[in-house]
């Protein structure tokens, strides 16, 4: 504990010094010669994973990696900060699909090409839950019941344009019930409780939020939206197992501003790889409900580019593009 305390203090002090002594020149081969600042865009799980990751990367790089929270604007503020910083590898961003959605909804004037990918680190898979009282056991049960019912299905999401909203839209469109759904926005992970209270009919959120309710048989989780089942809810089938051909997961990874030297990216990439594949990271992933999923820089870059097209199309169909 003392060790991490000292590291935290040196890290914070050094991070403060970065701004003042930005002119210190160092060749890419020595990287890093000072602390690396990791901009974190969101609170909650995103922030906690970033803190675990940065501790592990610190052990790899020998200089502190300091997570600095710059929330707000759905990630726009943090992306703009890192995009405008010097491309020397000392400013990295803990990014996610929000780079695609923020651009297409007009929150930031640049897109993913303003950054160089470093590595994908983790994925989180949304899960669809309904109240156990409904008696639905699969996606087809649900689709049939919804098609037959009057009125609309009330679905809890984390806000229009949020990742859970986009996942819901894609899933329900595929199931053919897209026009019978009305979305109810909740903040701060309140959707499971609203489901429990019966104010909404279904909710798409993260598996960790439903875990405790599933254990007590209050909520049924019908599907996860990725290609693989999630460890925290091993009995829940994927949507594609049930014939609904979608594969949507939220990835998180690291990126640096465009123009960062290749050697620097390679060093960050190998530190991220070692951290992601470590035991400690696996342990944290079980507790926090995400999956470590390392991809190297080029594979990660391909994935971001492919996703960009997908989200542009989805957002356009929802009338949310700018």
């Amino acid at each position: 504990m003392l060790k991490s305390l000292t590291r935290l203090t040196t890290g914070v002090l050094a991070a403060a010094a970065i701004g003042m002594a930005g002119s210190v020149s160092a060749t890419a081969a020595d990287f890093p010669t000072k602390p690396v600042e990791m901009t974190v865009l969101f609170g909650g799980t995103a922030n906690t994973i970033a803190q675990v990751l940065s501790e592990l990367m610190t052990d790899e790089l020998g200089n502190p990696v300091v997570p600095v929270s710059r929330p707000g604007g759905g990630g726009a503020v943090g992306y703009a900060f890192v995009q405008g910083s010097r491309p020397d590898g000392y400013n990295i961003v803990w990014n996610s699909n929000s780079i695609n959605t923020s651009h297409h909804t007009g929150k930031i004037p640049f897109d993913y090409t303003a950054f160089e990918p470093v590595a994908q680190v983790s994925v989180e898979t949304p899960a669809l839950a309904v109240s156990s009282d409904k008696g639905w056991e699969s996606l087809s049960d649900m689709a049939e019941a919804v098609k037959a019912m009057d009125g609309t299905l009330k679905v809890g999401i984390s806000g229009k344009g949020s990742f859970t909203h986009l996942t819901s839209a894609a899933l329900f469109d595929w199931m053919g019930i897209g026009d019978k759904v009305s979305y109810i926005s909740y903040g701060d992970g309140k959707a499971p409780v609203e489901l429990l209270a019966g104010r909404i009919d279904a909710a798409i959120q993260w598996p960790g939020q439903f875990k405790s309710y599933v254990d007590t048989n209050k909520i049924s989780v019908l599907a996860v939206t990725g290609n693989e089942r999630v460890d925290i809810l091993p009995d829940v089938p994927t949507a594609s197992e049930q014939g609904v051909d979608i594969n949507i997961t939220m990835w998180r990874g690291l990126a640096v501003p465009k123009g960062t030297p290749k050697e620097v990216i390679a060093k960050l990439e190998s530190a991220a790889k070692a951290a992601t594949e470590s035991e400690k990271f696996k342990e944290a992933s079980v507790n926090l409900g995400f999956t470590p999923a390392y991809l190297d820089a080029s594979a990660f870059g391909d994935r971001i580019a492919k996703d960009d097209g997908f989200y542009q199309e989805l957002l356009t169909s929802l009338g949310m593009t700018n």
């Binding site: 922030n47 906690t48 875990k211 309710y213 007590t216 507790n287």
Partner: peptide
């Protein structure tokens, strides 16, 4: 977040 990192997942099952 601190509870979850240590594997304590709050919710109705927590008391069990």
């Amino acid at each position: 977040a601190g509870l979850m990192v240590h594997g304590i997942i709050p919710g109705p099952a927590m008391f069990m």
